[in-house]
Design a protein around this nucleic acid. Structure first.
Lengths: 128, 128
DNA sequence: GCGTTGTGCTACAGTAAATGTAGCAAGGAG
DNA sequence: CTCCTTGCTACATTTACTGTAGCACAACGC
């Protein structure tokens, strides 16, 4: 049962500015949100398969995100169980598909951090 | 932040799977991250201008995100102050541009929630 | 010199959110 | 019936974010 959803409790940061892009960025910027959409990009998954795919994220936050995504009509719960993308959600997913290729190139770029290496502190730490 | 001695970041959830897309999705899925990139899409902003643009987000998390984004080489701090996108960051931002048009259409779609309306059985349970 | 303003950046208490473990009711298959 | 899987939730712990205040440094005006 979609019990809580966002009903009033969370105004979606940025939506007060009136720009829907802000509401969207805020929604997508919540933890596991992008990941969930990404994992559903190919085929529907059951809640537990999704949990497994999402690196065993806690079911609490997964359910919360799924409620929010269902409310936004990006994700839906199928007849016989299993979460899948709505046409709208599939469209959204297409939007950041190029991210995949970008990520590959990003990895090969000389970015030192984010892969276990500390920023060597060899660069000017402050520009002052 | 004590896992790696890196200035502001941690090992990036999902990077252990070895897939760079996961690291990227995790990084972008942190609060205000997408928003920061979005606000810098046109021109560099000073830290305070960025803070204003980001709906007065707390400087703590803003600095943290900026450190992470700088480490990922999406953002850089210019000579005379002011944060701007790197070529890599600009490229990433281009990826998200279609999101703008999508958001507009999303708003006009019959999605009831995210603008104050619950899904029907709205009931604020309020844990804690 | 001095004070003022504007950078980037940090401390810290308070609060909101995520984690991790456990468990529920409902539905099928055996 | 039991066994198993579905979606989903409770709750204590841990982590992340908020909000306010303030720092050091630099460039301006006086």
């Amino acid at each position: 049962m979609a019990k809580q959803a966002v009903s009033g409790s969370r105004p979606v940061r940025g939506s007060r500015t009136g720009r829907p892009i802000m509401a969207l960025l805020d929604l997508l910027g919540r933890r596991w949100c992008l990941r969930i959409l990404w994992e559903l990009r190919d085929e529907p998954l059951t809640s537990r398969a999704l949990r497994t795919a999402c690196d065993e994220a806690s079911p609490t936050v997964l359910q919360t995100r799924l409620s929010e995504l269902r409310e936004a009509e990006f994700v839906e719960l199928g007849e016989g169980g299993g979460y899948g993308l709505t046409p709208l959600g599939r469209e959204l997913c297409e939007t950041f598909m190029p991210l995949h290729r970008f990520a590959e190139r990003w990895r090969s770029s000389p970015s030192p951090g984010l892969r276990g290496e500390g920023r060597g502190e060899g660069e000017p730490p402050r520009r002052r």
